[in-house]
Amino acid sequence: MKALLFKEIKLAMHPTTYLFMVIGAMLMIPSYPYYVAFVYTCLGIFFIFLSARENKDIFFTASLPVRKSDVVKSRIITVAIVELLQLAIGIPFAIIGIRINPNAAGNMVGIEANMAFFGLVLIMYALFNAIFLPLFYKTAVNVGIPLVFAGIAVTMYVVAVELAVQMIPFFKTHLDTTAPAMAKYQFPILIAGMLIFALALWLTFRKSAANFEKVDL
């Protein structure tokens, strides 16, 4: 597994994925729909699969002494690392963003970059992974169709949670704020996000590996 992860980083990783990982800097923009910063990472992950396909990664990997399920596992771990690193890199930018925001009311066009937001982003990643990865491993070739389906799901999710936060008064006052007093309401969402992300990742791996096992390369 270590050798496979080394291969992922050394060969399969697309340069733009690194660039998108630091795009958490967008959390410093005074008013912005912050989900957008993290949607870029979904694109970065898509690029990993696209460039791996164009570089015939499957045939390189197939000639190595590895199990098919390990091929899937190493890629999914890589995806999770990219997503979590991007979130981690986003945290200091979120803190700086709040300090330097010139608007007294905070983010005018969406949820504040607070703990609840990070939890909701984790659920967004869980959704993206759960749709994109098993669909991709059905063929191990098609990357476009899985991106379309995962993209639609992510868009609908983001619109739905953003609307809920803005329209439902309780959410608006408790979640769309950086007031320290509200942190106790936001923390459970972060924890829920982490749990959902982890559980979904495990199920995504199981389904993807089962799909890939059936593929004739």
């Binding site: 050798a3 080394f6 291969k7 050394k10 060969l11 570089n55 015939k56 990664d57 045939f59 390189f60």
Partner: peptide, 13 residues
């Protein structure tokens, strides 16, 4: 596979 990678990198992997 990996046409733009160096021989030494592929061997190292």
């Amino acid at each position: 596979y990996y046409p733009t990678k160096k021989i030494s990198v592929i061997a190292d992997v």
